[in-house]
Design a binder for these strands. Structure first.
Length: 315
DNA sequence: GTTTTCGGCAACTCCGACAT
DNA sequence: ATGTCGGAGTTGCCGAAAAC
């Protein structure tokens, strides 16, 4: 009970309800019927009932349970649920511990176009679109409790304080907080969908790029498929599949060999170093092995390759 | 002296099949 | 989507020796 931030709301429990709160939001009029903190004493049961409007239930403290239609859910601090029009629900506080509830009860009315041609163009289109989106989601919100992930509850407190303290702009503040409660409630159920809309990486292409970068940076040493796999935190088998798919069906050893041979060619033409040294420089174990590989790949030996290109240059 | 070829062996890679 | 396994197949490497 100590440090319960909403405690102050008990002092004038009906403060907010005395206000005639009508909020114009996009194409809707939101009529606030009830907004308050209540407490269910231990063991209190509110039998099955329903409303014609939307009721938001937040549990800031205590525990209990709710049955929505025919499913029962345990309620713990930090949770909330929504009961839409005509949704039967049953509430019960824990038999020992009281359960507090921040309740927002609203009616949503969609303004008809003919209600006034003067304001047809006056409202913000973006806001209207968001309002539509929010209300649309509200209508199809799942019938089970979830965590108040986006901190809707503190908005009750802000609204209450604005009401009680009556400072400049407090009426607007209250209305904005009510809208915030709606938005944050909807968002709490929306996390999965939101994730999907983030620009997500094409992991295959990304890993392939990392792998290639690693190989280009280390081809001159001893580098194994396992090394690359470790760098990417993947199994070597998966790297193999990755290369096969993204590198024209080629395999790790082919790709590495190509990188090394390209380096060898550069050196053969750009320097006078011995084949043996160039081989080691490019990651081959020695000249004799390079010969075999070079020959198989290009049909000529390294020294022939060097000789030929010199011919071409001097002609 | 450097380049090239060759045989043989261990290590590594590749891949299908199956599991998670 | 990713990991594990096992075996067939390759690759990588060395030493020795022949050819420039």
């Amino acid at each position: 009970m100590l440090n319960f931030p909403y405690e102050v709301m008990r002092e004038r429990q009906d403060a907010l309800e005395r206000l005639e709160l009508r909020i114009r939001w996009g194409p809707y009029d939101i009529h606030v019927l009830r907004i308050h903190l209540t407490q269910f004493p231990p063991g209190r049961i509110v039998g099955f009932h329903k409303h014609a409007e939307y009721e938001f239930h937040f549990i800031p403290q205590g525990k209990g349970k709710v049955i929505i239609v025919d499913k029962e859910y345990a309620l713990r601090p930090g949770m909330f649920y929504l009961t839409g029009p005509d949704v039967m629900h049953y509430q019960e506080a824990d038999s020992i511990e009281a359960m507090d509830e921040l309740c927002l009860h609203i009616d949503i009315i969609e303004r008809t176009a003919q209600s006034g041609c003067d304001d047809t163009y006056s409202y913000d289109d973006w806001e209207a679109a968001e309002a539509r989106d929010c209300i649309e989601k509200l209508r199809t919100l799942p019938l089970f409790p979830t965590a108040d992930l986006h901190q809707a509850m503190p908005r009750f407190l802000e609204a209450y304080q604005a009401c009680v303290e009556n400072f400049v702009g407090s009426y607007t503040t209250i209305k904005q907080n009510v809208v915030q409660i709606l938005l944050r409630a909807v968002r709490a159920y929306d996390t999965a969908n939101e994730q999907k809309q983030f620009p997500t990486r094409d992991m295959k292409a990304y890993r392939y790029r990392l792998a290639m970068e690693y190989m280009y940076a280390n081809y001159d040493g001893t580098i194994t498929l396992e090394d690359v796999a470790d760098k990417l935190n993947l199994s070597s088998r998966h790297i193999q599949r990755l290369f096969k798919e993204l590198h024209h069906g080629q395999t790790f050893s082919r790709i590495l060999e190509d990188i090394r041979l390209a380096a060898v060619c550069r050196e053969l033409l750009g320097s006078e170093q011995s084949v043996e040294k160039i081989a080691k420089l490019a990651g081959f174990a020695g000249g004799n092995y390079l010969h075999a590989v070079f020959r198989k790949k290009f049909g000529v030996t390294p020294s022939e390759y060097r000789k030929n290109s010199h011919h071409k240059q001097t002609i």
